[in-house]
Design a protein around this nucleic acid. Structure first.
Lengths: 148, 148
DNA sequence: TTCTTTGCAAATCGTTTGCAGCATG
DNA sequence: CATGCTGCAAACGATTTGCAAAGAA
């Protein structure tokens, strides 16, 4: 996601309005690395702006996705997660506790062609599903659900 | 996804039953490269087994996902897609018409470590979002929604 | 016969929509 | 002060669940 300032410019340029709700949501997303769901954000922001409605949050998230400022992805837990970081990187997703963290930079895959099979590539999304260190420790104590 | 025969063995081994519904769904998925949604499969299979209910289809798909036989992913169109091919490969997703095709084999990324940041990797999922050749042709005729 | 799975329909959950009032530009 | 945005609540669509009946083993 670009800076909040450039979002302000973008909205003004298209005749939109910079409201307190949008600013709050933009600021919350800026630099967020927790891959939150809409509900996560709502419970986080509601106390800061009690009037905030879920509908507004969805509106704002959807427009960010349409603008290509935010990426959505399915972590396999039945919830949609949002990530303001659209740079090439992968997520590590735990199949047991659904923890999501960014993969270290050295995992980032090498540059891909701007065009593949005739598709003009705009965005990429990559997830590795597995068992996080914490859950591995738990499994070692009990029965292993995903033996090596 | 493994062969239908090995699924039969698996179900029997856990005391389950090989029903006409499961067989039908397994056979439909075997070798399927269309990345269908639950609805897609339902409209495709309903005529072949008129009694089939959506609930049963969801049950069967969910158990396949839990068994690691089928992968689910969000194509960004608001629908969950299923893919029986769990081998390393990427999907190309058109942002305009939501067409999904498998990326050619030479795009497949090189082997990754079995362990990243302490996570034991079990599954991987990769999508490239962009504009398909057909939609590019349409855009050329009109205004470009995603200019190069 | 036994016990899993099915089909139906109702319940649920996340997300979207319609509309009157409000606030930005 | 004109228009776009918000909040509310109802609508919506996809998925899940409860339970009696059906059918594999």
């Amino acid at each position: 996601m670009q800076s909040v300032e450039s979002l302000v410019r973008r909205v003004r340029a298209q005749g939109g309005k910079v409201t307190a709700q949008r600013m709050l949501i933009w600021r919350a997303l800026e630099g967020d690395q927790t891959h939150p769901t809409a509900e996560d954000l709502y419970t986080r922001l509601k106390p800061l702006l009690p009037g905030l409605s879920l509908a507004t949050l969805y509106n704002t998230l959807n427009e960010l996705v349409e603008w290509g400022e935010v990426r959505r992805f399915d972590a396999g837990d039945g919830h949609i997660h949002y990530d303001p970081d659209c740079s090439p990187h992968a997520e590590l997703v735990c199949l047991q506790c659904h923890t999501i963290v960014d993969a270290p930079a050295h995992i980032a895959r090498p540059a891909i062609p701007a065009e593949i099979a005739g598709f003009r590539i705009v965005l990429r999304s990559e997830q590795f599903f597995g068992i996080c260190p914490t859950c591995q420790a738990k499994s070692d104590a009990g029965s292993a659900a995903y033996p090596a």
